[in-house]
Design a protein around this nucleic acid. Structure first.
Lengths: 202, 202
DNA sequence: CCGGTTACAGTGCGGTCGCATTGTAAACGC
DNA sequence: GCGTTTACAATGCGACCGCACTGTAACCGG
């Protein structure tokens, strides 16, 4: 009975308008009217798909986080490598790539960070990687150490935690133009080298 | 000839009102009227001391950053220790203390981070520690390594960079209630232990 | 005691915002 | 074809915002 349209496509278009606006002028420039203009639709349509401004921004953040996570998984899959160390590097490097799309997402994430400080709902969306991610990364660390001829130290979960903290911090720095992606990657590699310990048997 | 008042005290009062407002409801809740109310003064006074809203928020951020830096220096001075390792820990721990005042400052900093993504002036105020800080920290690292019986590795500046990246990242996590100050401190200590290498001579 | 400067207080204006409301056209079951 | 439901489009409203402007009281060198 209803008019039939692709809702998902509509929402995605609106969310991308939000990203674009926030990328240009900060999240405070995101208003119903501007989102409508940017997406080339009417204000009524925006309201039809999102009951409130908050809901729109929240969904935009949710999708941005999903997209970044997808980038990480793609990096893992694309590396196609079974070498745990290469896999680990691929994961972490995904947060500091110079790719345009990634930059936009990270910058929106940083803009949203500010709101997260006073909006628990957004804070939850931006929360650090979950337990599974830490467990997975810790596993990679343990394997990589073994491959280098060392033995696991039992601190792999802590080390994994540090890995992601460092990587996200560097990602933020890149989004704010405090660092270049290259230098960030170098820093990250230096840390990985250190945390894996020296090669013992070639 | 003019009416004589303590300008510095006035500005400080206004800036603290900005901090308080941003702490409660995010930086977008900071308006001229609310700042005036919070500080218990008239809107005219706010305008008298700051030509625009932007100028007010910028000064608030500037002072917040100065205050955090002062906290770090105080931590160094308070430790009163000549032991380089203890000094290093004191510095870094200053970013993850559970102290109320520090929490407020960090939270305001995070709120401002969002704006920094699109406001270069604010971005500059929030820029990572300058070269002097890195040099100082690298020096501490080198000395601490020597005290442990190891020799400097020539990577002290990179390691110092990682130290501060990690510490600020943990500080942000604390501000957003993603971590407790205690767990952050533990993580930081674990990293320091690792970066200094094992004790060789007791 | 007077003139000039400073330090406010108060008010008003133009603009924008989120959101509610209302109108309308398309799609389909019957 | 008719009624109902969905998917918008358009407009209007009340709230609030930054800022400019105006008035005034305090202070002080002369």
């Amino acid at each position: 009975m209803p008019k039939v349209v692709d809702h998902e496509e509509r929402r995605k278009r609106l969310v991308e308008a939000v990203w674009a606006l926030a990328f240009r002028g900060g999240i405070e420039q995101v208003t119903l009217r501007k989102v409508a203009d940017e997406a080339g639709v009417s204000m009524g349509q925006v309201q039809h798909y999102y009951p409130s401004m908050q809901a729109l921004v929240r969904d935009a953040l949710d999708r941005a986080v999903q997209a970044v996570n997808a980038n990480i998984e793609n990096a893992v899959r694309a590396s196609g490598d079974t070498n745990p160390e290469a896999l680990l590097r691929a994961c972490l490097h995904a947060l500091v790539t110079p790719a345009e799309e990634s930059l936009r997402l990270m910058r929106f994430g940083v803009a949203a960070l500010g709101r997260a400080a006073s909006d628990p709902t957004m804070a939850r969306l931006l929360a650090p990687g979950d337990d599974d991610l830490i467990t997975f990364t810790a596993g990679l660390l343990a394997e990589a150490r073994r491959e280098r001829g060392g033995e696991p130290r039992g601190t792999e979960r802590i080390d994994a935690d540090i890995c992601w903290s460092l990587a996200t911090s560097l990602g933020v720095d890149i989004a704010l133009d405090y660092r270049s992606p290259d230098s960030a990657k170098a820093l990250l590699d230096h840390y990985i080298e250190q945390v894996l310990g020296p090669e013992r048997r070639p």
